[in-house]
Design a protein around this nucleic acid. Structure first.
Lengths: 332, 332
DNA sequence: TCTTAGCACTTAACTGCTTTGAGTGCTAAA
DNA sequence: TTTAGCACTCAAAGCAGTTAAGTGCTAAGA
């Protein structure tokens, strides 16, 4: 399926795409000639451009306009032409800094990471939290923080922290809370969250001490914590000038905001490949955008996806490094 | 300074502003005449418009365009003409709902509130957290959540919760943590946060038990918790179509994002007046916007500010209710 | 004195026409 | 295979004329 290109044509395609990514204007034979002095006349280049168009890598918006890359063109570029551009030390430093602080609480990590991606890419960053339902409960801490109010804190085997505040029907004493906490931990430690979700009552069943009380709290826990493990698991952040400067249309924007859409796209990515994966134009329902994504691992079993959404003419060479670098930070 | 207007002129000013807020087009004598049938001809209204312009309440962008309100016009409107429009029951219900859940953790509350304001106003909402440095420490909970990692949770006298994860130099046993926690609580309970910030070492001084260890943790606590009480205290959220639909320019947008700018504006508001306060155009450095703000109280001494930033032609009558209602929810 | 009809005047917005120039594709010669 | 040259295309910019939505002013009527 992939058609071989001569050295020169390949080079010209490279130049067109680089130029277009940089300036966003259709690029003409004359410009290439003058700016890059390839040692051939504009006419020759014109011929090459024409063949590149015939092969499907370029197109032009109207007769007398310069060329712009097609989706296929971008794909060829990414596969065969692009030299990956490493992050600068400054950028790596900034990222590392962010990661050194506070990075245990799941929601915070995700949020921070998305922001990071958005900032460095200057378009938009997202993070889909790993599905924790197959993770094991390390322990659960109950702390009273007011009448009828408990702070529940769960730590998973991977060391991730999730917390919620729950409202109890009864006002419990510190001592009782401690007792209950002990019992719950004894029973839930090492269990899969998915299992806990389904079976919490059974798991706690045989305990005789304050059975009813424990059941009530268990119910609250399920509602407020275990059932919410999956919720809020898509974080999206954009750089200030993303929508303003850049050619993303409203429609696409709406799509991004719909969690299910993104979920589908990313679930796909997660299951197909290791490392950085790039979706261009029609590859995803976000037809006018490209996505640069990578799966990441937290501990053994928890896999999430993170990445960048931006215009097709984004700096792939740099963005690949960025996404790769950050996803590797997670794997530690 | 305030110039009296005749009944009719006043009425016409009212109509112009209402109409302009609604549709955003300069409003003409003819339109007023046809739409509102005031019982006078367009010529009469034209005369009135001319006087209203002379007095500084209206202007027009070019010779043959209709009138639009000046800042002064809006101010007059707000002071003398506007009828406040209550929130619908539906809206009140939605707001109450949000507030019933989870509303103890300071950062979450602020974030949620800003979102709420943005959503209902359809422009943008912000919340500046109260300065907690004068609040009293209720208690502090230390929980081990991994090697060298402690979760610190502080509850203030008002029942607000702030938490952080801190990295300790030593890996402490559960038991030691409990002992230390007891000591710290005994000493810090009821103290002002500002005092704790300055004097933590002195406050804990006389304890003989594991003096050095406690000092280390105290240092971490100060760095990670007490010193950060004031940080991150401005939350800003915008409705999806805020920047797109609405006539806010880039410059202003940049200003909003600068915390110090907003801080100054709001610090001012906080100190001058109770209840809802409105800043129009030049009243604040955000020249092309209006702000509707209100101070709110959390407990006895903690005062914060929340509100809306939007275009000058926003629905003041409704927004005032919104800001007022939400700020009163805080006061409980 | 207040109101109003009427008219001259201003101006943005649109329309249609022409010109310009950047770019292509094709041809024919080196 | 390369290139110079030329005809052709089309967006964009400029220009003139028209329209319509306004205003301000005047003079007459209540």
């Amino acid at each position: 399926m992939v058609i071989k290109l001569t050295e020169r044509k390949s080079h010209i395609l490279h130049l067109v795409i680089k130029e277009y990514i940089k300036n966003g204007n259709p690029v003409s034979s004359k410009l290439l000639c003058e700016k890059y002095k390839p040692g051939y006349s504009s006419a020759t280049i014109r011929n090459d451009l024409a063949t590149l168009e015939k092969k499907g890598y370029l197109t032009h918006p109207y007769t007398s306009a310069g060329r712009i890359p097609t989706d296929e063109g971008y794909r060829y570029y990414i596969k065969d032409l692009m030299e990956i551009q490493r992050l600068t030390h400054e950028e790596e430093r900034r990222i590392k800094n962010e990661f050194n602080n506070q990075m245990i609480e799941l929601d915070k990590v995700m949020h921070q990471t998305s922001k990071m991606l958005a900032m460095v890419s200057e378009c938009s960053g997202f993070t889909m939290a790993p599905n924790l339902t197959e993770s094991l409960v390390e322990y659960i801490e109950l702390t009273k923080i007011g009448t009828n109010k408990l702070l529940v804190l769960m730590v998973t085997e991977e060391g991730l922290v999730k917390h919620r505040i729950i409202q109890c029907s009864e006002d419990l004493t510190q001592i009782k809370i401690k007792q209950i906490s002990k019992i719950i931990n004894k029973r839930l430690h090492g269990k899969k969250i998915s299992e806990v979700k389904k079976n919490i009552l059974n798991i706690l069943e045989t305990e005789k001490y304050e059975q009813e009380l424990i059941f009530n709290i268990a119910q609250d826990l399920t509602n407020e914590l275990f059932n919410l493990v999956d919720e809020n698991n898509f974080f999206f952040e954009e750089s200030p000038n993303f929508l303003g400067n850049v050619d993303i249309d409203e429609e696409t924007y709406e799509l991004v905001k719909q969690k299910e859409v993104m979920h589908n796209i990313l679930e796909n990515v997660k299951n197909t490949k290791q490392g950085v994966k790039i979706l261009i134009g029609n590859d995803s329902p976000l037809k006018n955008c490209s996505l640069i994504t990578s799966a990441y691992k937290l501990g053994e079993n928890s896999v999430g996806v993170l990445g960048i959404i931006g215009p097709k003419r984004m700096k792939y060479s740099k963005m690949v490094s960025l996404v790769d670098y950050i996803s590797k930070m997670f794997d530690k």
